[in-house]
Amino acid sequence: MVLALQKEDIDIGALISASRTNNDGAQIVFIGCVRDDGNMDALEIEAFVPVAEKDLADIAAEAMERFSLNSVDIVHRYGRLALGETIVVILVGAGHRPEAYEGSRFIIEKLKEKVPIWKQELSGNARGEWVH
């Protein structure tokens, strides 16, 4: 199980390979990325890292139990990210696809509701709106 906040890009292939087991009938990968909402060329992502790490662990544990998942990996980036870059990867493994889909959706919704991470639009050196 990988639960991390990091500045570096995420090696999604390596995550998938490392987490797959013979008990998995399905793996779901959710990738959040930087969308061009106009008047911006990047996002600055800020995180309260120690609290966010604990929250990710709590969310993963809850998802594992509620949806009988075999595995959960969540990697969220912070720092300056250009358009199109990966922000977050959520990888779940389960015996069957219904619980894998439901578990993945549960995790991203909980993350967006709770985890202390914020996004601010950037245009060149100018700081724009905080995303809500």
């Binding site: 959040g32 992502i45 995180a47 309260f48 966010a52 969220h76 922000i87 977050v88 991203i108 993350l111 967006k112 509701e113 709770k114 985890v115 202390p116 991470i117 914020w118 996004k119 905080w130 995303v131 809500h132």
Partner: peptide
């Protein structure tokens, strides 16, 4: 004491 606005990760 920590203060912050609503979060927006993901």
């Amino acid at each position: 004491i920590v203060i912050y606005p609503p979060v927006s990760g993901g």
